[in-house]
Amino acid sequence: MLNFDRVVKSFGPKQVLNELSFAVRPGELYGFCGANGAGKTTAMRIALGVHDADSGVVTIDGRPIDADLRAQIGYMPEERGLYAKMRPIDQLVYLAKLSGVRADEASRRAAEWIERLGVVMSPKDPLEKLSLGNQQKVQLIAALMAEPRVLVLDEPFSGLDPVAVDAMADVLLEQARNGIPVLFSSHQLDLVDRLCDRIGIIRGGRIVAEGTVGELRAKVAGRLLQISLQGAEAGWPESVPGVRRVDDHDGLVSFELSDGTDPDDVLDAVRRLGRIEHFGWRNPSLSDIFREAVTA
């Protein structure tokens, strides 16, 4: 289990992590979501020892992360970190050697992963000659080379085409099913929804919502109304009291109920504005959950 326990980090006067606590269980894909600047990357870098925490601790199976444990984390940094002029297989072997894997074993693993993930390249090409998607696959392989105990991946899916997304998702699911805690951050909420066992939403350096997608949905359920009117004046959504307009899809307008607003009052109000075509609860999407969590 990867555990963040009340981790605090400031850069100068700016507090980035504010007693951040959450846990990724063995065999679990944990989606780490949050707006830009919420502290996702900083949290991951602290786990990897890139930054040190001001206070608090990150543990693996109860042990604070030290140099030995750190070498057993598979890490994929947000800004891709590989040598542009070095051949992919050479750098995979190099990074594995730094994690204590023997050179021949490392070459074997690298070749296997390159085959399995379908990295398109000629063996002599330096990394910079590969397409971005293929570079990212190499980056993932780099994280997997040492058969890590924990995977920490910062935006692993950004910039991938749908086929590559599926290939990477398969690998992450497989790793998790083998009992490895997998922590990954992503802005692609549909992916997080599809893949993750649990989600943590970070805001202002702390987790503001956490749970399975179902649990989070249940929290937001009963707060979103979908209404469609016929014969109403343009701009009618602005004149509905006690709600906040969220979005509008072809006249089907979603509203978030303000605290204490009775849905019956909303029904009465919109009835006066036009003929009701549709009035009902909206099944919250992950975007709704996310929006709710980061704007609340």
Binding site: G49, V50, I73, Y75, R80
Partner: peptide
């Protein structure tokens, strides 16, 4: 500088001092 600007150093420092 290349190791630093391409953030390879983040991968490296997780493994070596």
């Amino acid at each position: 500088a290349e190791e630093k600007s391409s953030r390879i150093v983040e991968l490296l420092l997780a493994k070596v001092t």
